[in-house]
């Protein structure tokens, strides 16, 4: 693995620094019991119970979403 190893988080490229999805979320202030948050890893929903056990690898693409005002 090179120093340039990176992942995409909500469309933004960033260095891969976290070991697991839970760790990445925690670094952004999102606890595992945060309400209303959902995550997709490489185009598929990653259920909350699997945040801790799911490792991140270079090239992964994460979407982190939540409900907002809408019509």
């Amino acid at each position: 693995m090179t120093a340039a190893a990176s992942i995409r988080v909500n469309g933004r490229e960033e260095p891969l620094a976290a070991g697991s999805v839970a760790e990445l979320l925690a670094g952004r202030g999102i606890a595992e019991d945060a309400r209303g948050v959902a995550v997709a890893l490489n185009g598929a929903v990653l259920p909350r119970r699997r945040w801790t056990g799911t490792a991140l690898t270079p090239g992964d693409s994460l979407e982190i979403v939540r409900p907002i005002q809408g019509g």
């Binding site: 202030g29 939540r66 907002i68």
Partner: peptide
């Protein structure tokens, strides 16, 4: 009541609309 699903702001975690 309807709502939308959008990428979370990575700059800060705001109060949840659901709450």
């Amino acid at each position: 009541a309807t709502m939308a699903i959008r990428r979370i702001s990575l700059d800060g975690y705001a109060e949840s609309l659901v709450d």
